[in-house]
Design a protein around this nucleic acid. Structure first.
Length: 493
RNA sequence: GGCCUUAUCGUCUAGCCUGGUCUAGGACGCUAGCUUCUCAAGCUAGAAACUCGGGUUCAAAUCCCGAUAAGGCUACCA
């Protein structure tokens, strides 16, 4: 019986910026594909660009993956493996599949310019491809800086059988003699990637479509090393609304941006999952387990997908509404703290910054419960709940007026609300009770709901858009509610 | 410019492989209505797409060819 190798995929970002949301999807697909078959998912930090790589970005990547729950089984860092790449570059030299190139960057740039002027495709002119042994030795002895280039085979067609795109062919005559080892001794992406994927026993390379054109070079490299290449799956690009590669000028592109705005990790995962893949059913909400179970490369799309923030927002609102209150409160608290509405002073104990009042988590829970079905992003709670954590409310008197009510109507309305709320004892001060009593008061006083409830709601929240007055009153508590009605009454005197 | 890829409602997509059941389905968004003290949420309804042109076939969103458009790559960046 044939033994099937354990599936091993990798995510190979370069730490040259914050973890990009497009890369998150690539990581997700690679992860899901591996875990679907109980395989391994490997993180490889591709920090071979010395100028642009930074440690803080590496941290952002590992933190981001951890936050999402995309745990990796192994982690590697290319800058710690330089000797391996150098050795393999030398191997290629010996096999005659690569050569030393002593061309200066100035020469290459000039060459490129000339080619562009003549409208020729810019590529290396193979100036050093056939240097004599003596010449090479002389230059090496003189310590002339060099790179190692791949000696691209000619007059051949390389065929790729991509798992999402099918058969793709490339003519090797169009391929540049790619630099494999840079003059600073660092490998280029092409070398490092091929060597590592082989050494790390990667079975499936899942990466973005932008790499499709480089794949023939990689296949040829495997061939030169006499290695079996892995399978490739090039997943479609993530696009901005203008259908260009998703970039910063279109808003947030890093995972940390979205995290800070209060998008849930489940939402990022679920939303990304559906950007280029579908289950073949009408199912749209996926738990992490379900994703792993149902994901397959077969159902990945070929066309690029526009990142639609509207849809993301809907998912986020939906998931927020599904959360139980305790968890929702825990998610909101950091945002309330960040907005300087509350301040943590102990386990489950907080201080309302504006009023210096000490409150417990239950109080915060009542507050955020008011907004749970109203917000799309966690960061919105702070704005929506400002009224709740404020000492004195600031709003125009005119806001209190419902339809064509007069001053005396408002006075009357607020007076009724005040009296009725005052009659309820503290223990019975629940939204349900309040509603029953106030609705009764509406009837008794021959009012409409709006006439009683609108002024009350504004008095409690200072806003023309807010949760309902019964819930707000309960959450605020009897004392505060009465106090706010009193404040409103003063405005009408 | 060259090479590669892609092409269904505004967006994500189902259907395409294995032509007929597609007067093209779902979701987001949008519009209207219900509910209603506001804003949401919820419910109901609606508008909204097979890029174009040829061919094959009794029959094409589905197969073939071409055009067009879009995207990617074309670095000692990944």
């Amino acid at each position: 019986m044939k033994t099937i190798n354990k599936i091993r995929t990798r995510f190979a970002p370069s730490p040259t910026g914050l973890l990009h949301i497009g890369n998150v999807r690539t990581a997700l697909y690679a992860y899901l594909f591996a875990k679907h078959d109980k395989g391994d998912f490997i993180l490889r930090i591709e920090d071979t660009d010395r100028k642009r790589s930074e440690a803080k970005y590496e941290k952002d990547i590992t933190y981001g993956l951890k936050w999402l729950g995309l745990e990796y089984d192994e982690i590697y860092k290319q800058s710690e493996r330089l000797e391996i790449y150098r050795k393999h570059a030398k191997d290629l030299l010996e096999k005659g599949a690569a050569y030393y190139c002593f061309c200066t960057e100035e020469r290459l740039e000039k060459l490129r310019r000339q080619q562009q002027e003549k409208k020729l495709p810019p590529r290396y002119d193979e100036h050093c491809r056939n240097l004599s042994k003596e010449e090479i030795e002389k230059k090496l002895k003189n310590k002339t800086p060099y790179v190692i280039r791949m000696k691209m085979p000619r007059n051949r067609v390389v065929e790729i059988n991509d798992l999402v795109r099918g058969k793709v062919e490339f003519n090797t005559n169009l391929l540049d003699d790619q630099v494999l080892l840079k003059s600073d001794g660092f490998p280029t992406y092409h070398l490092a990637c091929v060597v590592d994927d082989h050494l790390m026993k990667i079975t499936h390379v899942v990466r973005a479509e932008e790499w499709l054109s480089s794949t023939p070079k990689h296949i040829l490299l495997y061939e030169a090393f006499e290695w079996t290449p892995p399978k490739f799956a090039h997943i479609p690009m993530l696009l901005s609304p203008d259908r260009k590669k998703l970039s910063k000028r279109h808003g947030a592109v890093s995972l940390s941006d979205y995290r800070k705005q209060g998008y849930l990790k489940e939402v990022i995962l679920n939303f990304m999952l559906l950007l280029g893949w579908n289950p073949g059913s009408k199912k749209e909400i996926f738990s992490f387990k379900e994703m792993i179970k149902e994901f397959s490369l077969k159902r990945v799309h070929k066309a690029g997908a526009v990142f639609d923030i509207n849809r993301l927002d809907w998912f986020n609102g939906y998931y927020i509404r599904q959360k139980d209150l305790d968890e929702f409160a825990n998610l909101c608290i950091p945002h309330l703290e960040k907005a300087k509405l509350i301040h943590k002073i102990g386990e489950n104990k907080f201080e309302i910054i504006d009023t210096k009042e000490k409150v417990y988590k239950d109080f915060i829970k009542k507050a955020v419960a008011l907004e749970q079905k109203r917000i799309k992003k966690l960061s919105e709670v702070s704005n929506f709940l400002k009224f709740f954590f404020s000492g004195k409310l600031n709003y125009e008197k005119s806001l209190l007026f419902w339809k064509d009510m007069k001053d005396k109507d408002i006075r009357n309305s607020l007076e009724i609300s005040y009296k009725k709320l005052e009659e309820i004892d503290k223990d019975g001060f629940s939204a349900k009770n309040i509603e029953a009593i106030l609705k009764k008061a509406v009837e008794e006083n021959n009012l409409t709901n709006g006439e009683l409830l609108w002024p009350l709601r504004v008095a409690l929240t200072s806003s023309d858009r807010s949760p309902g007055p019964f819930e707000v009153a309960e959450a605020l508590g009897k004392e505060k509610s009465l106090q706010r009605i009193k404040e409103a009454q003063k405005k009408i005197l």
